[in-house]
Amino acid sequence: MDHDEFKSGDGRFPATRWSVIAAVRSEDDADRKRSLDTLCETYWKPVYKYVRLRWNRSAPDAQDLTQGFFIEMLERELLNRFDGSKSRLRTYLRLCVDSFVMNEDKAARRQKRGGEVQHLALDFAGAEEEISGGTIDAAAIASPESLEEFFETEWLRSLFALAIEDLRTLCSERARDRDFQLFERYNLDGDNEISYAQLAQQYGIAVSEVTNGLAWTRREFRRLALERLREICGDDDEFQREARTAFGRNAG
């Protein structure tokens, strides 16, 4: 996946990110490819982890199935059948993965993909590291509710990780690298919470600078995450629901 595809002109993002669902139904091949790229970028890791843990597949098998799923999604135009009034895109894709894995004829598909279709460049080693990192308990995702919850968490993890990369780029472009470091240090590093005063001391700056830097990065992170979210939702209603899922729970 090439992040540069999302850049336009001198800005980081196109003026309006439009839904992958609209793009996939476009006549334009480039739009359709872009929609798959966007979906793949956000969803490949949740799909891979889901196949590994839910379907108990080995790493090579899961890699093959993940690759195959996204290619099949394009070939069989699965997104064309998505109906936003019946389910969220996230749930629809998870059910498609289930169906794909159940119907997979491994040998035939491996041969097909090996011969005709180009593989997607996905960092499976990184995903495998995250699984073996021990934060995911495979035994805890047995029920249908926990499956949905697991997929939702991994989807959110992937979405936020992408938004953080966007934020990193933005901070770099605006010469606000220190603000990004503050954001990383405060939100992402370690398990122990650090105070604004401690951060100010560590960076040799005033507490007010920490406050302002964190407020700005938090605002931009939220905006960037919502931009990405808008793109991978079927319509505005779904976007509103998913945004609540992303930011509404566990807060406060």
């Binding site: 959110l156 936020f160 938090r218 995450a225 992303a246 930011f247 509404g248 729970r249 807060a251 406060g252």
Partner: peptide, 8 residues
């Protein structure tokens, strides 16, 4: 932390 922070 990100969810809670961004929600504020």
């Amino acid at each position: 932390r990100l969810r809670s922070g961004a929600d504020l």
